[in-house]
Every structure is written in C-alpha cells, then in structure tokens.
C-alpha cells in the first residue's frame, strides 16, 4: 500500500470519528422538567441526551421519595441508616452553630400551629413548658437507633431537602450529566455552565416586594434561603414566621431573609436557618470558611458576610 493511500485512509478515518463525535454531541439537549416533592415544586434543568431524560427523572424521584419517606413528620424510622447519617450531620451543625440549628424544634412548630396551620400565639407558660423538649443534646444514640425523650419531635425541614438535592445531583453527575441545576423550593445546586455557557444566574427573591433582591452568578455551588415571608401569620400587626429560636421558643424576628452560598446544599440549607436566628452570624461563618451569606435585616438593609468563592488565592 502506498504512503499516499495510507494517508488518505487515515484522513477518512479521522473524518469519520470526528463526525461520530459531533453526532453524539448534537444529541445532547437542554431538558427541563418539574416534579412535585416535599410539598413544593422541584425544577430540574440538565444537559443530556433525549434517551436519558426518563432515567434522570426516575433517579431524582427515587432519591426524593426515599428522603420524603424517611423524614416526613410522623413517618420516621429512628433506626434507619439514612436517619442516623443525617442525624450525625445535623448534630455537627447543631454544635457548630451554638444550637441555633436544631432539629428538635418539632414541639414548638406544633405548639404555634405551623404543622396543622391552625396558627396562634401560645401563652408564655405554654412555651416554657415545651422548651425542655427542645435540644439535640437530649437525643441519645442507642443500640437500635435514636432514642428521644417522651414528647420530643424531630423536624428535619431545615436540612433534609438540601441533603436530598446533594444526593440527587451526585446521582446525576455519576450518570455523566455535566451541566444543570436542581432546585427544590429554593434549595438548589447548579453545576457546570448554563445554556449560554456562562455561570448560572440565580435570582434571590425579594422578601417584601415582587421581583428579585439581586442576582447571583454561580457554578458548582449550592444555594439556600430562609425567609420570614414563606410560612408566617400575623397577629396584632406582628409577623410570626416558622423559623424558631430554640433557646426562647419564639419565632426569629431580626431578619427578613438569609441566603447562603457554598459547596453543599445541605449545609447551605441548615446554615441559612441558623444564621437567620443567630445574633452572632460572624462566629458561625468562621466555622464554615467555604460559605458566604447575604442578609436582609428586619429594616430591609442588605449585607454580605463570609467567604466569597474565587477569593481563595488572596
């Protein structure tokens, strides 16, 4: 075979492989769909092949269904490995936040009527009576799982959704999905670049007005927001939100919203709750150097605090 013929064959093979690669690439399209989990909307936007859509939906549904079953109020198996795993994570955040993130606020949520939506302001003596049931240090880790004191109730709402988002994102990335986001009621993770090949633009809901407080430009990052405008009721002109200070038994009032940005959605979720309540947010963020936060205080003033991704090299 002549050298010229060999070169021609090699060139043809190269063109064929190039065409095959381009064809495979073309099959990837941006797909978006909406699912309903955790009593809210779950938005998914991913770059994948058409044949993968169904599998990704099933994968996300599998993860979310499992978390929903394990952590919904009244359906908790306190000995399951998942519960024990998230308990350990929650306990660590509890310790690092000085107790301001606490999954044992269940009795307070119930007392104020947030679980039944029969909202009311309890008498101070009723709140005082419930406070002994609050505090993660009261949970014992027995041979068969978690042991709660009589009357204690766990509320995983401040961490389980973020945790579920992280698990779902991992499942999709393991399937080769390189770009996308999963957003469950505002707890989200986005990875890779957006359809415009830029960082993802995440609008922060304004706590008191229509529209956005601002727009984040992020990638490979979790984001979560806690606010007093999602679940609340008003009595005599006072707003009572669903985020409780575990030390006083009353809803936190110092902030309108806190948005946390960082590598894990689970921690963003839990920290946004703790920072919403804590009078000393700087001390908490010092323990989480990879995380940053945007605060809107009760007067509507905006402030940022903590780590800004990208400034590591300073």
């Amino acid at each position: 075979m002549s050298t010229q013929s060999l070169a021609r064959k090699r060139f043809s093979l190269f063109i064929f492989l190039l065409a095959a690669a381009v064809t495979c690439r073309v099959k990837e399209r941006w797909q978006s769909y909406t699912l309903f989990f955790f009593d809210t909307v779950c938005d998914v936007e991913i770059l994948c092949q058409a044949a993968q859509i169904r599998a990704t939906q099933e994968e996300i549904s599998r993860v979310f269904t499992t978390v929903e079953e394990q952590f919904s109020p009244g359906r908790q198996d306190l000995s399951s490995p998942l519960v024990l795993e998230l308990f350990q994570q929650s306990r660590q955040v509890y310790l690092n936040t000085g107790g301001y993130f606490d999954i044992t606020v269940g009795p307070l949520v119930e007392l104020w009527g947030f679980s039944s939506r029969a909202y009311h302001v309890p008498r101070p003596e009723d709140i005082k009576a419930v406070l002994p049931l609050v505090g993660m240090e009261k949970i014992r880790l027995g041979a068969s799982g978690l042991v709660l004191q009589s009357g204690m109730k766990l509320d995983w709402g401040g961490i389980a959704i973020g945790w579920a988002v992280d698990r779902a994102v991992k499942a999709l990335r393991d399937r080769g999905i390189s770009r996308g986001f999963i957003n469950v009621g505002g707890d989200l993770y986005c990875w890779g670049s957006n359809p415009d090949n830029k960082d993802w633009r995440v609008g922060i809901q304004h706590p008191r007005q229509k529209g956005y407080l601002g727009v984040l430009s992020v990638s490979n990052t979790g984001v979560a927001t806690s606010g007093d405008y999602q679940k609340y009721f008003e009595r005599n002109g006072i707003r009572y939100c669903h985020i409780f200070n575990p030390t006083t038994g009353y809803p936190a009032t110092e902030r309108q919203s806190v948005t946390v940005i960082g590598p894990l959605t689970m921690l963003c979720d839990a920290l946004s709750t703790a920072l919403f309540i804590s009078p000393e947010p700087e001390a908490i963020l010092k323990r989480y150097p990879e995380y940053g936060a945007i605060f809107v205080n009760s007067r509507g003033e905006v402030a940022t605090m903590g780590k800004s991704p990208g400034l590591r090299s300073f």
Binding site: T34, F36, D39, T40, V41, D43, E45, F181, N183, G186, D187, L188, C190, N194, P195, W200, R201, V202, G203, I204, Q205, H206, P207, K210, G211, Y212, L213, V215, L216, V223, A224, T225, G227, Q230, S257, T259
Partner: peptide, 28 residues
C-alpha cells in the same frame, strides 16, 4: 412578572408567567 409562579402542591398544579427571563432559577 415573567418567572412568577403560583403553586398548588396538593393538586400538583403550577401556574408560571412566561416572558423574557433574566435569571435561570430562583432561590427564596
């Protein structure tokens, strides 16, 4: 406003306003 939603989770119902979007997704 474009992107605003009304959700009814028990009914698995979503109303979304369509129009020019300035963000990819929303937190809050």
């Amino acid at each position: 406003l474009a992107g605003e939603r009304i959700i009814c989770a028990p009914n698995r119902f979503l109303l979304e306003i369509e129009g020019p979007r300035f963000v990819d997704t929303i937190t809050g």
